[in-house]
């Protein structure tokens, strides 16, 4: 089972039991996933994207009883999103830029997991002070060289290396529960 399925499915089951906290998290996650999903198909600047996101969230709310807890949640939400998109395209004559045949299992795909991992990473980095945070972002995430980063930030190359190293160490101390061998 994919990470997304496990996470969202769990939240949905709690929501059906009436857990408002889980439901808020679920709707927030779905909001960003749906935004990506519709934006990719209608074009990022389309004003319809946000309308569709909201329409779909309302459908999730109104039709939540139709989620069968024995079935994958990602299939359920994907079917709703796809239905709303097709309905939208049909009745408003909007051009869909990605062929619908290609969009099976979008919510279970790796790029969603990557997006979520990236969001987790951002949250982790936010716990660091500004300087190591910037340095790690430049060198480890954006992939710039130490020399480039040194030039950009006005620090010496040694200071950049030390900053990255200390930042990573701080992160490892805070989040590195299991030590890798």
């Amino acid at each position: 089972m994919s990470l997304v399925e496990e996470q969202l499915g769990g939240l949905m089951r709690k929501s059906l039991a009436g857990d408002a906290g889980a439901y808020r998290v679920l709707l927030g996650e779905l909001g960003s996933l749906l935004h990506r999903y519709f934006a990719r198909r209608l074009g990022r600047d389309s004003a319809d994207v946000e309308d569709l996101v909201q329409d779909t969230l309302m459908a999730v709310h109104a039709k939540r009883a139709t989620y069968d807890v024995g079935q994958p949640f990602t299939v359920w939400i994907h079917a709703i999103a796809r239905y709303k998109l097709i309905d939208h395209a049909r009745y408003r004559r909007i051009r869909v830029t990605v062929p619908l045949e290609e969009d099976e299992a979008v919510f279970a795909s790796d790029d969603v997991e990557a997006a979520m991992a990236r969001r987790d990473l951002d949250a982790m980095l936010d716990t660091l002070p500004a300087q190591p945070r910037t340095l790690i972002r430049e060198v480890k995430i954006e992939g710039r060289s130490v020399a480039e980063t040194a030039e950009k930030t006005g620090l010496s190359e040694a200071a950049v290396k030390v900053g990255v190293h200390r930042g990573l160490k701080a992160l490892a101390a805070r989040f590195g529960g299991a030590k890798h061998p």
């Binding site: 929501s15 408002a20 808020r24 709707l27 909201q54 969230l57 709310h61």
Partner: peptide, 9 residues
């Protein structure tokens, strides 16, 4: 919208 939906849960 999310606030409203959560309140209606």
């Amino acid at each position: 919208l999310i606030d409203a939906l959560v309140a209606d849960l």
